[in-house]
Every structure is written in structure tokens, then in C-alpha cells.
Design a protein around this nucleic acid. Structure first.
Length: 417
DNA sequence: TCTGGGGTCCTAGGACCC
DNA sequence: TCTGGGGTCCTAGGACCC
């Protein structure tokens, strides 16, 4: 058996842990730049706030219902996630951390799955303050369904989906568009073929599924029928792409300002790359105007560079990123977003040096290791390149940011007695 | 005024090889 | 008269996920 533990309304719950007075009150969390609503408490969902809705469109509902609004605080959510995952890891020898707020746990050889799930749920709640739901079933896809049932209908927050009759009943009621792996396009297609429930999909001909929904669709159908096709991935595999991109709070026109932001993004990518002990051989940079502005000129610039030698050196990655930027920058546009992407990522065991290489890589490696250790200890960007700049005109809008209660000494919670 | 960020995997089609 | 067959590898674009 596999258990899927999923934190309820995770970002909203993280904010609420440190504001117990907001218990039972509607709250929402906004995306970067305070743009869209990306998390809602149950109360906010009941009011009809939609996932992904732009904040300015929901303004009236927010004011009328006195909904509390937070900018996203990833330092807080990341740290809370680590705490939750640490507890889950202590309860199962095999665990796959699937996202910031959910994990699959191996529940084979457990005498009572329900009891175990209840125990885990209570422990996470007591130790972190985060409420969770647990779905238990034979395959990941069924566990996802079980979890969704647990969230909606089970007071104790857990649901064991087992036995052919119970599974069939659940699949008959489960809409096909809510299945893991079925998005809007496939929903439209399946509906056009008269398929509306998970049960109807599970009864489809496998050849037909493979032809129309690809190999992933076929695996999904098998999983619905209790045949495991998505095994529990115990190890964290290194990223195959690394990206840092941001919308700018106000539009940027000057090359100098773009240069600053792209340098910061590139430097951030380089740090992430070194964190996972990899190297990159391909760097892309993009800049774009605001697609929602209908009355102004639009432009998207994208440039990829293949590097002669794989690297994870900040200086080198920034240098290539700026070279790309120069080739795509056009005057007289208002840029709203930019980013850096590293592809073609290699582990350090696969490195091949170029005979024309002019960089002393041993020396640079030492430099980067000092650079990282200072920044890890003293905070991000304590040491940085001067090209990354000071004024950061493009900085994110975060008007409703909560304190970093768990990661910054100066912002730790005060209790008055 | 105002619309996020970071991933994965699959497939078709082109380039290239013998 | 008139030009095969079978591969591999890479990439862009699409779909999906949280």
C-alpha cells in the first residue's frame, strides 16, 4: 500500500500557524509581485475565490468578506515543508517527496494503515501546526483519489481506498478531469468521447488509450485498475533544468536595469546548480513585454548559448547570460519579465575539459566554495557580483509579507506574558 | 494601476548515419 | 521507365503537475 500525505491549503496553513487568531477566518496567499491568488483557506474557497485568480479582480470579494491577504513567503513555506517532511521520513523508511506540500509513503507491511495514518497526521499537526490529509491505496493514482476523498468528506482526514467494491464506487463518482494527469485538453477530448468519470476511463480499451492519450494515459488507466506503473521514487534525482525568472514590479526599458536583473537570475541559477553538484553546458536567457497589455508593442527575446566547457561557476554563467541578453535586447520596449534557464545539466562525474580552456578551474572552484559558504552562513547575496547592482528597480512587489518566523532571528515570534 | 514560478515527460519531425 | 530501408539522436512544442 501507498499513502499520500498532503498538507491542507499549505501556504495558507503556514501563515495561520503563527496567527492563531486567524483560525476559521478566510485567508489567501498571493503569487510573487502580489499578482495572483495561489492559496486559499477553506473559508476563502467557500466565498468563491478561485485558484489563480488575479488579485485585482478579486479585490471586491476580498474587501467585502474581510479576507486576510498575504504575499508569498517562500522562506517560511520551505522551512515548514522541511519540518513536515522530516517527520514523515521518520515514520517510513521509503518516502517520495513529491512537492513542497505532499509526499508518498510506503505503507506495505503495516498492520493497520488507518491507525498509522491517524498517528502520522496527529504528529505532524502537533509538531508543526500544519493540518494534513492522508489517502491510502494500492497505487499512486488511487492514493491521489483517496486523498481527495479524505480532504472533502472525512472528518478525521484519512481515507483507505481498498477492495474492489469501494474502489468501483469511488471511481464512478470521481470526475475524469480531477484525475492526476488529466488536464484541460484531455478532459475536453475525453468528454467528447462520452467519458466523464474515472470509472468510464478505467474500462477503456488499452490500445485506444495509448493511441489517444500516449503512454502516460495508459499507465494512468492501469493504475486505476490497481496495477502499479508509477513506482515510489525513493531518491531525489538531480534537476534536469534550472530556471530563475521573475516578473518586474514595474516595466523596465533600460539595458542597464535588465543587465542587473539577468545577472541576479544567472547567479541564482549557478547557486542552485552547485547545490546539486552539477554543471551546465547550455544557458538560455529570455526577456518579454507584458502580454496582458493590449495597446503596446510586444516582443519576446530568447537566446540560447552552448558552452564550450561545462561549468557551475557564477562568474562564467553570468558572463554568458549577459552575452545572450545583449543579443536579444531591443530598445523602445517595456519589459515586464525576464529569466535565465540552464539546460544540458551534467553530474560532476561526467565532466570533460576543453583543450582551449583558459580558466584556472581549480582556483575558481575554491573561490566558489568560499563564496557559497559565506552566503550560506550570512544570508543570500552577502557576497555578490557588482554587476548584480544595488538599486534593484525591478524588485518584486511584496506588500503583505509576513515575517520569516522560523528562519530569521530578528523576525522570530514574540510572546508577551 | 493590476495577471507567478519552476518543473517533468512525451511525441513528431528533422538531421544524420550506414 | 528511373532513387530503399532501418536506425539513432536531438529539439521544439505541447500537455501536465504543484
Amino acid at each position: 500500500m501507498i499513502a499520500l500525505v498532503d498538507c491542507n491549503n499549505f501556504y495558507a496553513s503556514c501563515e495561520r500557524v503563527f496567527r492563531p487568531n486567524l483560525e476559521n477566518k478566510p485567508i489567501v496567499v498571493l503569487s510573487n509581485n502580489d499578482g495572483c491568488i495561489i492559496a486559499r483557506s477553506n473559508e476563502a474557497k467557500e466565498i468563491g475565490i478561485k485558484m489563480g485568480e488575479p488579485a485585482f479582480k478579486a479585490k471586491k470579494k476580498i474587501e467585502e468578506n474581510d479576507i486576510r491577504v498575504f504575499s508569498s513567503n517562500y522562506a517560511l513555506y520551505g522551512d515548514m515543508s522541511n519540518r513536515v517532511m522530516k517527520i514523515l521520513s521518520s515514520e517510513s523508511s521509503k518516502i517520495e517527496i513529491y512537492s513542497i506540500d505532499e509526499a508518498f509513503l510506503d505503507f506495505s507491511n503495516i498492520a493497520s494503515c488507518k491507525q498509522k495514518a491517524l498517528f502520522i497526521r496527529e504528529k505532524v499537526k502537533k509538531w508543526t501546526g500544519i493540518p494534513t490529509s492522508v489517502g491510502i491505496a494500492k497505487t499512486k493514482v488511487l492514493a491521489k483519489i483517496a486523498n481527495s476523498i479524505a480532504k472533502k468528506y472525512c472528518k478525521n482526514g484519512i481515507f483507505l481506498l481498498d477492495g474492489i467494491n469501494l474502489i468501483n464506487r469511488a471511481l464512478k463518482y470521481f470526475p475524469v478531469q480531477d484525475l492526476w494527469g488529466i488536464g484541460t485538453r484531455l478532459t475536453k477530448f475525453l468528454n467528447s468521447q462520452g467519458i466523464y468519470t474515472a470509472y468510464e476511463l478505467s474500462k477503456c480499451n488499452e490500445l485506444w488509450i495509448k493511441k489517444n492519450l500516449s503512454i502516460l494515459g495508459l499507465k494512468l488507466v492501469k493504475e486505476l485498475n490497481g496495477i502499479s506503473c508509477f513506482p515510489l521514487e525513493n531518491q531525489i534525482s538531480p534537476r534536469k533544468n534550472i530556471r530563475t525568472s521573475r516578473s518586474f514590479s514595474s516595466g523596465i526599458t533600460k539595458f542597464e536595469d535588465l543587465k542587473e536583473s539577468i545577472s541576479c537570475f544567472a547567479s541564482n541559477c549557478a547557486s542552485k546548480l552547485r547545490d546539486q553538484k552539477s554543471y551546465t553546458k547550455k544557458i538560455s536567457v529570455f526577456i518579454r513585454t507584458n502580454p496582458f497589455k493590449l495597446n503596446s508593442k510586444h516582443y519576446i527575446g530568447l537566446k540560447s548559448l552552448d558552452l564550450p566547457t561545462a561549468t557551475n561557476d557564477t562568474l562564467e554563467i553570468v558572463k554568458y547570460a549577459l552575452k545572450s541578453l545583449k543579443s536579444i535586447y531591443r530598445e523602445n520596449y517595456i519589459y515586464k519579465k525576464g529569466g535565465v534557464i540552464l539546460h544540458h545539466i551534467l553530474p560532476d562525474s561526467n565532466l570533460q575539459l576543453s583543450i582551449f580552456d583558459s580558466i584556472n578551474r581549480e582556483k575558481r572552484k575554491s573561490l566558489m566554495s568560499v563564496y557559497d559558504s559565506i552566503n550560506n552562513k550570512m544570508g543570500r547575496d552577502t557576497v555578490r557580483l557588482s554587476v548584480q547592482g544595488q538599486n534593484r528597480k525591478w524588485r518584486m512587489k511584496q506588500e503583505k509579507l509576513s515575517p520569516c518566523y522560523t528562519t530569521r532571528m530578528s523576525e522570530i515570534l514574540n510572546v508577551k506574558i
